[in-house]
Simulated scan of single mutants.
Amino acid sequence: MLTFAAAVFFLIITPGPGVLSTAGVGAAFGREAGLRYLIGLFIGSNIVLIAVISGVTAALLADERLRLILFVASIGYLTFLALRIAFAGSKIAFIQRRSPPGIPGGITLQLINPKAYAVNTALFSGFGFLPENLALEVTLKLLIANAIWIPIHLGWLALGITLQRMNLRHATQRAVNIAMALSMLFVVALAAYSQM
């Protein structure tokens, strides 16, 4: 169980679309908007968890054409987000918008986030610790994953808010945006590589 918890921590804390966009919404719109977006991410993350656990994801991805369409759409959207972050200029907001994405935006991002599917598939298909009681193991995994997911995402939200309040020099803000965009592109590249 401790190995599973450690895997959850390290797989979730690494920069990906969910945590980076959480920091971005916090930087651009503040705490309240960030918390609403985080609720959406949480709901979306659990929808992905249920889809992976129930086998719905496996059934959908069994169709090569549908898998290719979903993969291209996800990779395209995440690349678009990474480019928007990279070219946000000297203002740390990661994603420039006129209004916060809210709960629907968080749900949508998680549903097309290839990292969410890859992480949850790895976590729930491996790291077994109660082979004699699979239902209890899955329940405990859900509780552990969510107990770790929440503070990590709250931490990224706080990071985004803090970065905005620091009033960093323009060059530093631009460097942060580029580093975040490169992190997201790295996740996109890993997702693309995993499909080869």
Rank of each mutant, 00 (worst) to 15 (best):
L38F: 05
L38K: 09
G40I: 02
L41T: 12
L41R: 11
L41P: 04
F42Q: 11
F42P: 08
I43N: 00
I43W: 02
S45V: 14
S45H: 08
I47P: 08
I47K: 11
V48D: 01
V48F: 14
A51K: 06
A51Q: 10
V52H: 06
I53C: 08
I53W: 09
S54D: 13
V56W: 06
T57S: 15
A58T: 15
A59V: 15
L60G: 08
L61D: 01
L68G: 00
L68F: 00
L68E: 00
L70H: 01
V72N: 02
A73I: 05
A73H: 01
A73L: 12
S74M: 02
S74I: 00
I75S: 07
G76K: 06
T79M: 11
F80P: 04
A82D: 10
A82E: 09
L83F: 12
R84V: 05
R84Y: 03
R84D: 01
F87Q: 07
A88P: 01
S90C: 06
S90A: 09
I92G: 03
A93T: 14
F94A: 12
I95A: 13
Q96K: 14
Q96G: 15
Q96M: 15
R97T: 13
R97H: 12
S99H: 15
G102M: 06
G102F: 07
G102A: 05
P104C: 00
P104W: 04
G105F: 07
G105L: 00
L109K: 09
P114Y: 07
K115Q: 09
A116L: 09
Y117C: 03
A118M: 14
S125C: 11
G126T: 01
F127L: 04
G128W: 02
G128E: 01
F129M: 10
F129C: 12
L130Q: 10
E132H: 13
L134Q: 14
A135E: 13
L136M: 14
E137D: 05
T139F: 13
L140C: 05
